[in-house]
Simulated scan of single mutants.
Amino acid sequence: MNEDLSLLLIMVEAGGIMAPLAFVVFHLLRSFLFIPVSVVVVAGGVLFGTLWGTIYSVIGLMGVSIFFYVFIDRMPKTQERILKIKNRWFGEYRNLTVGQIAILRLIPFVHYHLLSFCLKQRKPKFKEYMRASLVTNIPIALFFTIFGEYISTFTPTVIAMILIGLTCLVYLLREKQNVIKWRDFFKRKTEKAAG
């Protein structure tokens, strides 16, 4: 991963006027290189400063969101795997709200595309999905661009407190009701009675 980050820094420094474009393209390539979103966004803040780093990161993350929206339906096995992970982590009948997704994107070990999948389930139409993606991508771009240099100086206690705070926010922003289809509810009851 350090080699990929070094490659990004060299490309951007050598790119001059093309550096922002190279950075945005690197956001798209990040998924295939298995580099966490937070690392690339922090690098954007270091390379371009807070304002431009945030803007370029939002553009790059929106490109990733468009890419995900267009291609996830064309990859049914990948979609099936992501659905299984979503059901294991959040529950079969639980739909995350846009606010919860925005908060969960701030937690580095929660997979970005899993949250994009949850967002697509919540907002299946393209325009709605793009608006919601923008709303959920701005906090991660701002947070990691502005605080990126300070995060490395946090003690484990401060990091634990931040993660606990984010977890509480996810809980508070949850959907207060679950809708279970009639046949699914009784199917589960009969399966339990038969087993």
Rank of each mutant, 00 (worst) to 15 (best):
N2Q: 15
D4C: 04
L5I: 14
I10H: 02
I10L: 03
V12S: 04
P20K: 14
V24K: 05
H27V: 02
L28G: 14
R30K: 15
F32N: 14
V39E: 02
V41E: 03
V41K: 01
L47T: 10
G49Q: 09
I55N: 02
I55W: 01
I59L: 15
I59H: 03
G63T: 08
I66Q: 01
F68K: 02
F71I: 14
I72D: 09
K77H: 10
E80P: 01
R81T: 10
R88C: 04
N95K: 07
N95T: 09
L96K: 00
T97V: 01
T97F: 01
G99R: 03
G99I: 00
G99D: 03
I101E: 00
I103H: 01
S116R: 03
C118A: 15
R122L: 04
R122H: 05
P124I: 08
K125S: 13
M130P: 04
A132K: 02
L134V: 01
I138F: 04
P139S: 05
I140C: 00
T145G: 15
F147T: 06
Y150N: 09
I151K: 02
I151T: 09
T157R: 08
V158D: 04
I159S: 14
G165R: 06
L166S: 09
L166G: 03
Y171I: 14
E175L: 07
E175D: 14
F186T: 15
K187R: 13
R188F: 08
T190H: 09
E191I: 08
A193V: 13
G195F: 05
